[in-house]
């Protein structure tokens, strides 16, 4: 039986994986991938709510937005990581700590 809970559990799993990735990975690109996972977890939830929760089309439209945003985000973030690499010769985010003095 496929109901709302199933989707939500999948979404939560995806989200947790994404968080885990973002927190534990040192590689900037891997962190970005974790972010993508989190976004898609949200998408899953949106679509599920659209189907079962009465959000109707809004859920679809939001997930489309998120996809577009994720694309834009990926583009910007990759550009940032590229710049970090160009400046520091690494994409290990632990070393990009110049904000701390």
């Amino acid at each position: 039986m496929v109901d709302l809970n199933t989707y939500l559990v999948i979404g939560a799993l995806l989200f947790s994986l994404g968080i885990f990735g973002v927190i534990t990975r040192r590689n900037g690109v891997a962190v970005l991938m974790g972010v993508e996972l989190i976004l898609n977890a949200a998408n899953v939830n949106f679509v599920a709510f659209a189907r079962f929760g009465g959000m109707d089309l809004s859920g679809h439209i939001f997930s489309l937005f998120v996809i577009i945003l994720a694309a834009a985000e990926a583009a910007v973030a990759l550009a940032i990581i590229l710049n970090i690499y160009n400046n520091m010769g690494t994409i290990n985010i632990d070393e990009a700590d110049q904000l701390k003095q």
Partner: peptide, 9 residues
């Protein structure tokens, strides 16, 4: 305030 994004997260 470590400057590490992941810590913040």
């Amino acid at each position: 305030q470590t400057g590490k994004v992941q810590n913040y997260l």
